[in-house]
């Protein structure tokens, strides 16, 4: 019998490859090999990983249907096992996988919805930090605003999509038993950027106005409000700067203020 390390290596490899032979020397009560018994371990691994993906991407699963999702998740899982035991981190590459998955070529927004769900999961587990009250902005001298830097909550994430992925995600949130999943695309179909955060106990998602994603990205990089406003206008001339300036405070995304360096 090969040494221990080889036995486990062979066992593990056979778990992920349904075509692989059952390793020898694994027997049932009669001393005979049993493919059915080995299949229990294979199934545990596959079902555990597909279950984790279904739990992390419920809107994507509703969009494509449970059977399709399970099959796609299984293909992903067997070729992308986790790199560690913390299952909350598993599946980071799943949206990219869906984007390149040929059966979904006609449904490119599904991958975008999956990115939103991934961002929500990451926000859910993000560190805690106390946000400033929404009224803080009103207490600041207007002259101080252009040079102001904002420290954003560690949970803030952005998902940009050429499709109305935020609206599609929101439409999937009605899980009343018997409710038909709303798979109709919004009219008109256009790009949407969303901000996702968990400033308190709950994850929040907001579809951003024109220039909003560029604005928040600049703030996260340490830009002043003035520079962030410029970035917003450069991205989209329709950006409403006064309204954008209030947005991070209104959503409780700001945990601190900084001035000039």
């Amino acid at each position: 019998m090969p040494p221990f390390a080889e036995r486990l290596a062979e066992f593990g490899a056979a778990l992920l490859d349904p075509e692989a032979a059952v390793p020898p020397g694994l027997v049932g009560p009669d001393g005979q090999p049993s493919a059915r018994r080995f299949a229990v371990y294979r199934n545990n691994v596959a079902a555990g990983l597909t279950g984790a993906l279904t739990a992390a991407y419920p809107a994507a699963a509703r969009l494509v249907g449970a059977d399709f999702f399970r099959a796609a998740a299984r293909i992903f899982a067997l070729s992308h096992p986790p790199d560690g035991p913390v299952m909350a981190r598993y599946g980071a590459g799943f949206a990219a996988f869906l984007e390149g998955f040929p059966p979904l070529a006609g449904y490119p927004y599904v991958a975008c919805v999956a990115r939103i769900e991934r961002a929500r999961l990451v926000a859910y587990h993000a560190p805690e930090a106390a946000p400033l009250a929404p009224g803080t902005l009103a207490t600041l001298a207007p002259a101080a605003l252009p040079g102001l830097r904002l420290v954003l909550h560690p949970s803030v994430g952005l998902v940009r999509s050429p499709y109305p992925a935020g609206s599609i995600w929101q439409a999937q949130q009605d899980t009343t038993p018997g409710a038909l999943p709303d798979t109709a695309l919004p009219d008109p179909v256009g790009p949407e950027d969303v901000v996702i955060a968990r400033p308190g106990a709950e994850v929040v998602l907001r579809i951003l106005p024109p220039g909003g994603a560029a604005f928040l990205t600049a703030l996260q990089a340490g830009a002043t409000l003035a520079d962030a406003a410029e970035a917003a206008l450069a991205e989209d001339p329709r950006a409403d700067i006064a309204s954008l300036a209030g947005l991070p405070f209104a959503l409780e995304l700001v945990t601190g203020l900084g001035g000039a360096p």
């Binding site: 299949a39 545990n44 279950g51 739990a55 992390a56 035991p85 299952m87």
Partner: peptide
């Protein structure tokens, strides 16, 4: 069909859908 076999779970995902 193996995909219909009952399975054991180990660590579970927790996330916003379980609030």
């Amino acid at each position: 069909n193996p995909t219909q076999m009952p399975s054991r779970t180990t660590a579970r995902m927790t996330g916003p859908s379980h609030q």
